[in-house]
């Protein structure tokens, strides 16, 4: 697999994907098609299996059945490192940063994806001047919003083809969330395929071009953000 394998923003195809923690299956045969260049919001209540499905897409978890096809490449037993080198950037739940490294060192790590570390730093500091001020500070001592900025800076600077975001808004003030989603919009405008996992429907649908609702480990509905917005409330309420 070469880094240049994914030239265009790819489509993601999931076929019959099942995933389990030990003996307990939490994703039951998901078929999902995520169009190339779309901002796809995967919605659903707590425990629906959204984050697990994102783990499967980013190769952090091996599916017990089914296949994941990114950009037409049916990868056999991919590793997160191999996917990252192909241009798949995943920001996991919580903060996708290394707390015991400085801000600058965090950015240097991300330059492993084929972009010079000076370029990564330049792009990150240009967009987030605050990070430049704190470049010698341990990332774990930044505020929640700043930590998420640092994580997003990686997506901006690493020039990914696919961006997978898990609960970006978790534990952040609404203003910070709005700012971060504004950035996601800018990244998507470059033609990057973005998959968002969010509990907060309105936040995600602001930037989404397509959406799906997941309930009890299965896809409940897919469609436009407007349709899903209307369905979401009913789906969430019926979930219990």
């Amino acid at each position: 697999m070469k880094a240049a394998a994914l030239i265009q923003a790819p489509a993601i195809e999931l076929t019959g994907v099942k995933a389990a923690y030990g003996r307990i299956e939490v994703v039951h045969g998901v078929d999902l098609s995520i169009p190339a260049g779309s901002v796809f919001a995967l919605l659903g209540p707590n425990g629906a299996g959204k984050s697990t499905l994102l783990k499967v897409i980013s190769a952090r978890m091996r599916p017990t059945a089914g296949t994941v096809d990114i950009g037409g490449l049916a990868l056999r037993r991919p590793t997160p490192a191999a996917l990252a080198r192909l241009g798949v950037c995943a920001i996991p739940e919580g903060r996708g940063i290394f707390p015991n490294l400085t801000v600058r060192e965090n950015l240097m790590i991300w330059s492993f994806q084929g972009v010079a570390s000076s370029v990564v730093e330049e792009v990150a500091y240009d967009r987030f001047p605050k990070l430049k001020e704190r470049r010698r500070q341990m990332a774990g001592t930044l505020s929640g919003g700043e930590q998420q900025m640092l994580a997003i800076a990686r997506a901006l600077a690493g020039d990914p083809k696919v961006l997978l975001l898990d609960e970006l808004s978790m534990g952040l003030a609404p203003l910070v969330v709005a700012e971060l989603y504004d950035l996601v919009g800018q990244i998507a405008a470059r033609g990057v395929t973005v998959v968002l996992v969010e509990q907060f429907v309105t936040t995600a649908l602001m930037v989404a071009t397509d959406a799906a609702i997941m309930l009890h480990g299965a896809i409940h509905a897919t469609g436009s953000p407007a349709e899903m917005g209307q369905l979401a409330a009913a789906a969430y309420l019926s979930e219990g």
Partner: peptide, 15 residues
């Protein structure tokens, strides 16, 4: 040094 902090995240960074 990063590998002790979060090996999964390091893998997601291509290492």
């Amino acid at each position: 040094r990063a590998v002790v902090d979060d090996p999964d995240l390091l893998a997601m960074s291509g290492v």
